[in-house]
C-alpha cells in the first residue's frame, strides 16, 4: 500500500475539512431516522482517513427533495476487518473501505477503545 501516497485522487478537496489523511476517526454510533448513507455495520467502528473525496450535496437532505446544501465533506475511511466484524475469519491485514460524511465522524481519541 506504500505507493498509494503519491496516487491520491486529484478531486478538489473541500477547502475546509475537519480531518486529514491518516487521522484516526470513529464513526458515530447513532440510529437517527431517515435516509442515511452510513451503513449500520460500520457505526461505532474506528478507522483511518484514506482520502478526502471533496464536498458533496448532503444525501440526507437530497433524499427528501431538498437541495443538499450546505454540502458535506466526504471521506474514504479504511477499517481493519477484524475491528469491524468480531468473528472475522480472514487474516488480520484484510481491510474494508467506504465513504463517510464528515458529520458522521469524530476523532477516535474521544472514544477510547474500539467499539466491541
Amino acid at each position: 500500500m506504500s505507493s498509494e501516497a503519491s496516487l491520491r485522487s486529484t478531486y478538489t478537496a473541500a477547502p475546509v475539512h475537519r480531518f486529514n489523511v491518516g487521522d484516526k476517526v470513529a464513526v458515530k454510533h447513532a440510529n437517527p431516522p431517515g435516509h442515511r448513507r452510513t451503513p449500520y455495520y460500520i457505526r461505532g467502528r474506528q478507522g483511518v482517513i484514506e482520502r478526502i473525496c471533496g464536498a458533496y450535496p448532503n444525501p440526507e437532505e437530497l433524499a427528501y427533495g431538498f437541495d443538499g446544501k450546505p454540502e458535506k465533506v466526504l471521506y474514504r475511511v479504511r477499517f481493519l476487518q477484524t475491528q469491524v466484524w468480531p468473528g472475522y475469519a480472514g487474516p488480520a491485514n484484510d481491510i474494508i473501505e467506504m465513504e463517510i460524511f464528515e458529520h458522521w465522524l469524530e476523532p477516535a481519541s474521544q472514544r477510547g477503545a474500539p467499539a466491541r
Binding site: 448513507r37 452510513t38 444525501p59 466526504l74 476487518q81 480472514g90 481491510i95 474494508i96 473501505e97
Partner: peptide
Amino acid sequence: VRVHDSNA
C-alpha cells in the same frame, strides 16, 4: 483483501 463499499 481490500473491500470497497461503494456507499456514497
